[in-house]
Design a protein around this nucleic acid. Sequence first.
DNA 1: CTGAAAGCGCTTACAG
DNA 2: CTGAAAGCGCTTACAG
Lengths: 346, 346
Amino acid sequence: MNLKRLSELLELSPTTVSRALNGYPEVNAETRKRVLAAAKSHGYAANTMARRLATGRAMAIGHVVPLAEHDMINPIFADFLAGAGEVYSSSGYNMIVSVVSVEREIEAYQSMAASQNVDGVIVHAPLANDRRFEVLEALGLPFVAHGRGEDAARYSWVDIRNRKAFRQATERFIHCGHRRIGLINGMKSMTFAQRRHAGYCDALSSAGLSVAPELVRHSDMTEPYGYETANEMLDLADPPTAFLASSLMIAFGINRAITERGLMLGRDISVITHDDALPFLPNGGDSPVFASIRSPIRGHGRRAAEILIDLIEERKPGPVTDLWEVEQLDGPSIGPGPFANERATA
Amino acid sequence: MNLKRLSELLELSPTTVSRALNGYPEVNAETRKRVLAAAKSHGYAANTMARRLATGRAMAIGHVVPLAEHDMINPIFADFLAGAGEVYSSSGYNMIVSVVSVEREIEAYQSMAASQNVDGVIVHAPLANDRRFEVLEALGLPFVAHGRGEDAARYSWVDIRNRKAFRQATERFIHCGHRRIGLINGMKSMTFAQRRHAGYCDALSSAGLSVAPELVRHSDMTEPYGYETANEMLDLADPPTAFLASSLMIAFGINRAITERGLMLGRDISVITHDDALPFLPNGGDSPVFASIRSPIRGHGRRAAEILIDLIEERKPGPVTDLWEVEQLDGPSIGPGPFANERATA
DNA sequence: CTGAAAGCGCTTACAG
DNA sequence: CTGAAAGCGCTTACAG
């Protein structure tokens, strides 16, 4: 069924049928009713390509996912997509996900712009010096970043207070009497990891403690990485008594290392983890295992999508930014450190 | 830049430029060279909507993701998408992901068909009696399922030998001297969970053992579910000595329960887990923690996409199916059960 | 309130 | 080997 046939059946012009379907006000109420009923009963919906060609709007948002051969598919990414996808569905947009090799990421944006099949894109996981931003600006493709780089004033983004969150978490440890605190962080090139590291340093400096380089590690955030790094740090002459993990998977790995050594979480070794509150990866269900820093990724996805659509439909002018506070949550993984009494009597 | 302007610059007709760009053989080699150079230097790519309207092909594949309010976003799903996405990218297709509430899933397929914005769809996580298949057949929308239902002869799918895999895993336990084996499975409505349960029952029956209903559980596959279920089963008067987990997250939960009770994995309690080999969720890195049944999800995604494209481009006629064998892998989580000696002397 | 007509930017028989 | 023209199925000024 197409517009022409439908309008013949109704003995109306395609013009009127189109207007009735698209909610134009000037259509007679009775006419509109007939048109809507006929469209429904014949299962008519406007051909997407024709409509988009006529209106000049792709009604689609692109997400480029760069993927090395045996690289990680980020669970964060999936949950973010779920949030963004909800908003797209209810706003009539399609979500186009483009999976490409890392070397072709820039190319993917260029081809999206040239072939005009998206109205805008979401940029994931910004790096410190991220070429993508200048490329997108040059292409004139509207975008919103999940996270932010150094030139963050120039574009729109949704981010959380990483630095503050990790400063506070480190302070919690210090207040409990910990002095040797391991930071098992994400990849160093990522801005979120840099900010978390900065927050960790802030707290140590404020407390008059120095940063021990052997207690800081950066890499992809997996369970084995947490396990191996915790083991290495615990083998040091002066091992940490507390760990700050940049993801729940890392925390699981730390816990495995602790348990294998016959140590007890929260008594012998304390852990606070960043927990992105992924629904499929809950921190112990009703009763949390880990004290945590929490932020709802799906909410970030929703918000980023809303901002991007506002930008595209020109309801908002310039860069729109949204910086989320995070929650500091308690859990049994946190206990007194070796300097707890010293602190109490100070 | 559009075709008209580009052809004016080249002093050629749009027809010839289009043919040169699309690789038609009849174009003069010299002309084609000029056209390609000009397209490149002006960053020209054919407008997606115009091309699709003219050819009648959407050049897009749909993935509908039904999502309850606080539902799980499946990590399996993300990795499958990565595999499918690789194939789409290299074949010139777009991946359209539609996130909708569970009640609107069927509607989403209907609207995709009516508005003709996809050439086919992938169906995820088939249920025993899955309405989606009849709806898609009625709509005439080509599809490939990841997993298969009861009427699996009628359509195309990619699946693994779930029943055989879980029969074999159960047999491994029985051979090691285990008699009380807990099965912590996925949701009962899912065909994969039903097949795994059947395989488990097969092995017990063959060994002359009866199925103890208190040792079988079905639910969403999360870490807390594994933890709580393992605890409940271990509290039974006649507790299991081995667990079969339908996912790695469940196995993590079982391990937590075991450890908390001061038991040791592989000595006091054995575990075999189904492990979908997700890159971000490795089973202990280089040295596995769990004995496992393994299958590469991303590979399933690749294969499903290839089959669907073959169907759409009519390189293959009827239903195409691909049933994958799985690997049974060893690990330190498996040890002798209470009847190990009885068996050895039998 | 309704309709005839142009146009969105391509592709592709058809003609030469 | 190249081009003029029709057509894909819509939307939207313009006219009445």
